[in-house]
């Protein structure tokens, strides 16, 4: 079998690079996890070893002292609501951009592409002023709206790409049968787009979950802030407690890893569908 033989160096290369990347991905997480069970003094004196006793106090204190319970619920709330709306809006735009053949779509699509290039820091001050004037500053709505906006460019990109790949015949047949465009959207596009919906949802969810700058700036009440703000108050600065810091990071990271492990198949399936052609 000549093919096999020529594959051998490939295989060695393949295994070594895969194993290397796997180690790089897992070690930090394991280290973080074990360290979070050590009191601060033990981390300073013995950063590497396993904890001598499994010290739960870090988690208890991080949870209560940092109000992580409230933050956690808010994170779930923002991530789900904003992500759902982003997905819905992006799918609507994707449908019209892909199927309506209006020239203005090209312009809108270019605008969204431009949106991919904008950093949060360059809009934060005008955005804050805007929210203050309209009275949605320091409310949940004031967080959700920017989240939707920042999720849109990538999601629109995915949705448009995906829907362009769907044959026009389905839609045309329905039109001839007298269906309205909204009915087509609801009963044809949405079901067909399930894989890309999953991708948009998961990807947007991940980035909303980790978002920090917007929620920090746009809110001030503990009751409506989210997890990254809580975690940030544990990270670094003049005074420190590594144990608390690590346990807070674990609380923030674990849900995402679980979320990813459960849903990653959908994510991968959708990517194939979304990024096929421009």
């Amino acid at each position: 079998m000549p093919v096999r033989k020529s594959l051998l160096p490939w295989k060695i290369f393949a295994y070594s690079i895969m194993v290397l990347f796997t180690i790089l991905a897992i070690t930090p997480l394991l280290w973080l996890l074990t360290s979070s069970f050590k009191p601060h003094a033990e981390i300073v004196r013995n950063p590497l070893g396993l904890p001598r006793t499994w010290y739960m106090e870090n988690f208890r204190r991080a949870w209560t002292q940092g109000s992580l319970g409230v933050y956690f619920m808010n994170s779930v709330f923002y991530s789900i609501i904003a992500t759902s709306i982003t997905t819905l809006f992006a799918l609507g735009s994707g449908y019209t951009f892909a199927k309506f053949n209006y020239r203005i779509s090209k312009f809108f699509f270019a605008l969204y592409t431009l949106g991919l290039l904008i950093t949060v820091h360059s809009v934060i001050v005008p955005l804050f002023v805007l929210e203050t004037y309209t009275g949605i500053g320091n409310t949940r709505l004031g967080v959700i709206i920017p989240y939707i906006a920042f999720g849109l460019p990538f999601a629109v990109y995915l949705a448009t790409g995906y829907l362009k790949g769907i044959p026009d015949s389905l839609e045309e047949a329905a039109l001839i049968d007298g269906a309205t465009y909204m009915q087509i959207f609801r009963y044809i596009i949405v079901p067909v787009a399930t894989p890309i919906i999953a991708t948009m949802f998961i990807y947007t969810f991940l980035s909303n979950w980790n978002e920090f700058v917007l929620v920090l700036t746009l809110t001030s009440k503990t009751a409506i802030r989210s997890l990254p703000v809580g975690i940030n108050s544990f990270a670094g600065g003049m005074s420190r407690d590594y144990g608390l810091q690590f346990s807070a990071l674990v609380i923030g990271t674990i849900p995402m890893i679980l979320f990813y492990l459960i849903f990653h198949e959908y994510l991968e399936r959708g990517f194939a569908a979304g990024i096929s052609k421009e």
Binding site: G92, T96, F108, S122, V123, P126, L127, I148, A149, T180
Partner: peptide, 29 residues
């Protein structure tokens, strides 16, 4: 007319949010 109406109904919500939150500050910048 129906097609145009549907187009805007589907495109506008996202576009409005996007323009307000991102493009307006960019122009301001």
């Amino acid at each position: 007319f129906r097609k145009r109406y549907s187009y805007w109904l589907l495109t506008a919500p996202g576009l409005v949010v996007f323009l307000l939150v991102i493009m307006f500050p960019v122009i301001y910048s």
